[in-house]
């Protein structure tokens, strides 16, 4: 499969923030990671682009969004989370549990050490 085509397809995601050169623009690394995971899942055929675009649009048009659209990638992550739950890859409860566990792991990890999930148990 040609990764390049897929990437250009994901770039068509509604409202995607782009640089002047037309590349996706990210304010923080987690946004690039969320984008990359979506590209990768799509490349592997886990979902089609139209399935993705629909779920993302629903998240983007929910009320209460920021006027400056700085929460674009918050919506992106919400859409990806929902899509993989709808596809029965995981459950909302499991994602919540893992999110809290990662927060605990970060807090339990001294500066300078890689943050690993196992560190959560050291709390």
């Amino acid at each position: 499969m040609n990764a390049h085509d897929t990437k250009s397809l994901l770039i068509l995601s509604p409202g995607l923030p782009k640089s002047r050169e037309g590349e996706p623009a990210f304010a923080e690394p987690w946004q690039a990671e969320a984008f990359a995971m979506t590209v990768h899942l799509h490349e592997r055929g886990v979902f089609s682009w139209s399935e993705w675009a629909e779920v993302l649009s629903q998240e983007l048009y929910k009320p209460g969004r920021r006027a400056d659209a700085a929460d674009y990638y918050d919506c992106w992550v919400a859409a990806l989370s929902r899509l993989i739950t709808e596809l029965s890859i995981t459950s909302t409860a499991n994602l919540e549990m893992l999110t809290r566990k990662w927060q605990h792991a970060a807090e339990a990890t001294p500066h300078g050490k890689p943050i690993r999930m196992e560190n959560a148990s050291n709390l």
Binding site: Q103, A106, E107, P110, H111
Partner: peptide, 21 residues
């Protein structure tokens, strides 16, 4: 430096997705 690591809500969510996937 005891407690200077923190994940924002979004960083943690993205890590959770990555873990599951």
């Amino acid at each position: 430096h005891e407690h200077d690591n923190r994940f924002s809500e979004m960083q943690a969510r993205v890590r959770a997705l990555e873990t599951v996937l």
